[in-house]
Structure formats: structure tokens, C-alpha cells
């Protein structure tokens, strides 16, 4: 057991070290979210007007963009597994007395921490967009981001277990990422769309992550929240759902990684 814990922290520590040491990656990871915020924000805010009392379009979209940052950054945990395999470092980790389970948990934890850092950096934009930040808001955001990113990092590691090259992984994740983001209620409320789209969106687990983050920012009283069979989802129930799914993904990643030689 001590071996697993040592594995978790040493692998996660390296993820952070690499993240901090790579300024280009840090800056480029904000490119897409910023682009969406600026272009969609500038393009739609005036046309759409207020979506609810005191909530304009860019304020609606902003929490979704934070969730999107978490998504891309978490899946990156998988990228690092493929890169390690390609550059040989994975062998150094595999022969260390830390066990495979520790490696997977460490990759997921590292990816999750990096995602949390990026989400918190995104908060810098809040005053510019007219979003009020309170200590309570930030404190309740942290566990939500951690639960969401742990699940997504696990998904990244799981995908990486089947991928031999970084190119292959990148391609697969690109294909996965866009429908996930567009059908998660980042850019529009999922309650007011055609039935087929509503069904897909409500099956998409990311929808609940986006909604939980949005509820933390905007509160739940705006009627923009996701309803399932007539019930308005609350943050705790959404987190339970995302957490359970994440636990399964993590378990899957551990099993697959352990089985490989």
C-alpha cells in the first residue's frame, strides 16, 4: 500500500513539474477557451441579450468555458502517458517499485491538479466579464473541478492505454472533444433545444459538470439549470453522478494498465 501512495505522489509531482516547466503548453492551453470567449462573447452578447435576470450571454458562457478548460487539460494526462511511452520514460516508471496502480492514480491525480490550476487561472477573467467572485464561490468551485477532472483524466489515461503514438492519441481526442463540448451546454442551455439534441446532451456526462460549475457562478434560481425527467439537478447530485462515472473510468484505467505487459 505504501508503494501505491508513493507512486501516486511521485508521478503526480512530475506532472506538475513538467507543467510548470513548459511555459508554451501553459499559455497555449488558454488559447482555445479565450478564443471562444472573445469571439462568441463579442458576436452573440448583443444579439442574444439577457438569458435570464442579470445574466448576459458571456456571463452564461464563462462557467462553461471553465469546464471546457478542465476537459482539455484533464485529457492531457493521457497524452503524457503516450509521450512517456514514446520517449522511453515510461520504462523508468514501470521498473520502479511503485506498482502500476500507483502510476495510473498518479497520472490521474497529476492531470487533475494541473486542470485545477488552469481553472483557477481562468478566474482572472471574472472581473473583466462582470462576474463577481467571492471566497465561497472559489472554495465551492475547487471540489467540483477536482471531481470532474479526476474522471476526465482517468478517461484520458484509459484512452492512452490503447494508443501507441501521440498523433493517434491527439486525433482520437480531437474527435471526442468537440461533440463533448458542443453538446454539453457550454454555449447554449440544453433545455431549449430540439428533442434529439436534448437527449444526447443529457446523456453526455460533461453536461452535468458544466451545469454544476455554472450553478456555482450564477446560482440555481435562473431557470437555466439542467432538468432530468422534470427534476432540476442540484450540484451535489450532479457531482455524485460525475463522481461515480469517474470512479468507473479510473477503475477501468487501472485494470487495463495493469493487464498490459
Amino acid at each position: 500500500m505504501t508503494e501505491i501512495w508513493r507512486g501516486v505522489w511521485v508521478v503526480a509531482y512530475r506532472e506538475i513539474l513538467r507543467f510548470v516547466g513548459d511555459r508554451a503548453r501553459f499559455l497555449s492551453s488558454f488559447a482555445m477557451p479565450l478564443l471562444f470567449l472573445i469571439i462568441f462573447g463579442a458576436g452573440f452578447t448583443r444579439t442574444i441579450g439577457a438569458l435570464a435576470q442579470g445574466v448576459n450571454y458571456i456571463q452564461f458562457m464563462y462557467p462553461g468555458i471553465i469546464a471546457m478548460t478542465v476537459l482539455t487539460s484533464s485529457l492531457f494526462a493521457g497524452m503524457s502517458v503516450v509521450a512517456d511511452r514514446e520517449f522511453g520514460f515510461l520504462k523508468e516508471i514501470l521498473v520502479a517499485p511503485i506498482g502500476r496502480t500507483g502510476i495510473v492514480l498518479g497520472k490521474a491525480a497529476g492531470g487533475s491538479l494541473v486542470a485545477l490550476i488552469q481553472a483557477l487561472v481562468m478566474l482572472v477573467l471574472a472581473p473583466i466579464l462582470g462576474v463577481k467572485l467571492t471566497p465561497t464561490l472559489v472554495l465551492s468551485l475547487i471540489p467540483v473541478v477536482i471531481i470532474l477532472s479526476l474522471g476526465l483524466s482517468s478517461l484520458g489515461v484509459l484512452i492512452a492505454s490503447f494508443m501507441q503514438s501521440q498523433q493517434g492519441f491527439q486525433l482520437f481526442v480531437q474527435i471526442l472533444i468537440f461533440p463533448l463540448i458542443f453538446l454539453a451546454g457550454v454555449f447554449f442551455p440544453v433545455n431549449n433545444v430540439p428533442a434529439w439534441m436534448e437527449i444526447i446532451s443529457k446523456v453526455n456526462p460533461l453536461t452535468y459538470g458544466v451545469d454544476a460549475i455554472r450553478q456555482i457562478f450564477l446560482g440555481s434560481a435562473h431557470g437555466l439549470g439542467v432538468t432530468v425527467f422534470g427534476h432540476v439537478m442540484t450540484v451535489p447530485s450532479e457531482m455524485a453522478l460525475v463522481g461515480v462515472l469517474g470512479a468507473f473510468l479510473l477503475l477501468g484505467a487501472v485494470i487495463v494498465f495493469n493487464r498490459q505487459e
Binding site: R14, L17, D22, F87, G88, F89, L90, K91, E92
Partner: peptide
């Protein structure tokens, strides 16, 4: 201790 044929260092560190 192990030294492999191919480098297993983390070149970014």
C-alpha cells in the same frame, strides 16, 4: 539498477 538500450530520461526535466 537499470540502464536500458534506449534513453529513459525525462528530457524536459
Amino acid at each position: 539498477g537499470l540502464v536500458f538500450q534506449q534513453s529513459t530520461l525525462d528530457e524536459q526535466l
